[in-house]
């Protein structure tokens, strides 16, 4: 088995005095889909922010493509192909869809492939092409999520962390977005799916990690974990 693209070892992360992540370890094998599930407040988003360099951990290490990237800021990591689609999409609401996507190609290496990537994103999400001149703040929640995913894809990433992309979206839209993610994975993208919902992400992923109160409570191959095991870890019974 090849070297995992991402290795997280005993990460601890705090907000002031509050410890959001106690001790989290997980591996993401190259070109796989890994899901990370857990209840609200389990520390999933903090862990993702920490991996992506938007938050600095107080202990532990993160390795990406074999390199120690602990404490490397987000704007450096995106150049190396590690992208985060943050919770709540966080589009640049006063900018047009096109400009949002264009900002996605901000890293120098990505600028060269901008035209190709625009085409790729517009093929994935044709609705964005129609609305490319509209301010992203005027879009629906699902469309904003598409902008955020497209923006991440514009940077030519090797690994994308999707933080609760299905939050607040209609089931049909979630289904489409998941299909898109599977398609991207088939094209060679490594994926981490963070969700509160148990079923969909476990079904989509090869590996599953369950977080509970700041710790990874359960890890394993998605198809080998039983529903009872996952539920126990999820709720801490």
């Amino acid at each position: 088995m090849s070297e995992p693209i991402l290795k997280v070892e005993h990460i601890q992360a705090k907000y002031g005095d509050f410890i959001a992540v106690h001790d989290a370890s997980l591996d993401v094998p190259d070109k796989s889909i890994v899901s990370l599930i857990g209840a609200n407040g389990a520390g999933k988003s903090t862990l993702m922010d920490t991996i992506a360099g938007a938050h600095t951990p107080t202990a532990g290490k993160v390795f990406y493509k074999g390199e120690d990237i602990t404490g490397v800021p987000a704007h450096e990591l995106i150049k190396r192909g590690l992208a985060l689609v943050p919770q709540g999409s966080r589009c640049f609401v006063r900018m047009s869809v096109e400009d949002n996507l264009r900002m996605g190609s901000y890293p120098k290496a990505a600028r060269a492939k901008r035209a190709d990537n625009f085409e790729r994103v517009y093929n994935l999400f044709p609705v964005l092409k129609e609305k490319r001149k509209d301010a992203s703040g005027s879009l629906s929640g699902g469309q904003r999520q598409m902008v955020a995913i497209g923006r991440a894809m514009m940077s030519n990433p090797d690994l994308v962390l999707f933080d609760e992309i299905s939050l607040g979206l209609a089931p049909t839209i979630i289904k489409d977005i998941y299909a898109t993610i599977r398609q991207l994975n088939a094209e060679g993208l490594s994926v981490v799916l963070v969700e509160q919902d148990i079923h969909r992400s476990v079904k989509t992923s090869t590996y599953t990690h369950v977080m509970l109160k700041g710790r990874v409570a359960l890890s394993g191959l998605s198809k080998e974990l039983t529903e009872a095991e996952i539920k126990n870890a999820y709720f801490g019974i």
Partner: peptide, 20 residues
């Protein structure tokens, strides 16, 4: 555009590679 993006959302700007 990075100036406009940063004023819209600092974190998101960082995530696309802007040194804010």
């Amino acid at each position: 555009q990075s100036i406009r993006a940063t004023s819209d959302d600092k974190v998101a700007a960082q995530l696309v590679g802007v040194n804010i």
